[in-house]
């Protein structure tokens, strides 16, 4: 699908911060406020803007720390539906935070979130590996999240170190 330059510009602004108002977007991009709202609505309807989540570092909150595992899953694709059917069976579980089809030595990369290692072990042994087309799983526990979706978790160290007034 081809977009107009102004639609691309709007997406760029929203990707940085989705809380920007249509008025501010219009001022920044020299567009009409109503047109901006119209474009946003259209981009939402067409599924280009999928959702507006907020990135939260739960690991900083006592009692809210989560354990995440990246699971490499090998599967036998099914005639007619390929990987899509098994992928859907897996991603419908709320424990699954992301799922990608990969090239290479395994097929699906699944990230699973739980409250404890036991939770995750249980999910993998009871739910994931019992799906009939799943051939094998390899589990890697995540130790620390440094960067997520382009955002540095520990805050950017590139603070403003400029003097207040310079020529």
């Amino acid at each position: 699908m081809k977009l107009l330059q102004e639609q691309l510009d709007i997406l760029e602004v929203l990707e940085e911060n989705h809380q920007v108002t249509p008025k501010s977007i219009a001022e920044q991009l020299q567009l009409d406020e109503e047109d901006v709202s119209k474009h946003i609505k259209q981009l939402e309807q067409e599924g280009i803007i999928v959702s507006y989540p907020t990135l939260i570092d739960w690991s900083k909150i006592e009692g809210k720390e989560a354990i995440v595992a990246m699971v490499d899953v090998k599967v036998t694709p099914k005639r007619g539906v390929g990987f899509d059917e098994v992928a859907e069976r897996i991603y419908r579980y709320p424990e699954v935070k992301s799922l990608y089809l990969m090239s290479g030595t395994y097929d699906l990369s699944v990230s699973v979130e739980g409250k404890s290692m036991k939770d995750i072990a249980l999910f993998i042994s009871e739910k994931l590996s019992t799906i009939e087309s799943v051939v094998s799983t390899t589990t890697h526990f995540m130790l620390k999240k440094y960067k997520h979706d382009g955002v540095i978790m520990e805050g950017d160290k590139d603070d403003d170190r400029r003097m207040v007034i310079t020529p």
Binding site: D160, R162, M163, V164, I165, T166, P167
Partner: peptide, 19 residues
């Protein structure tokens, strides 16, 4: 510069370099 540097909570539109 001296005046602004001594104050807190200043928003500076006085900087002649990239942010």
């Amino acid at each position: 510069f001296d005046l602004a540097a001594s104050m807190e909570g200043v928003i500076s539109l006085g900087v002649g370099e990239p942010d």
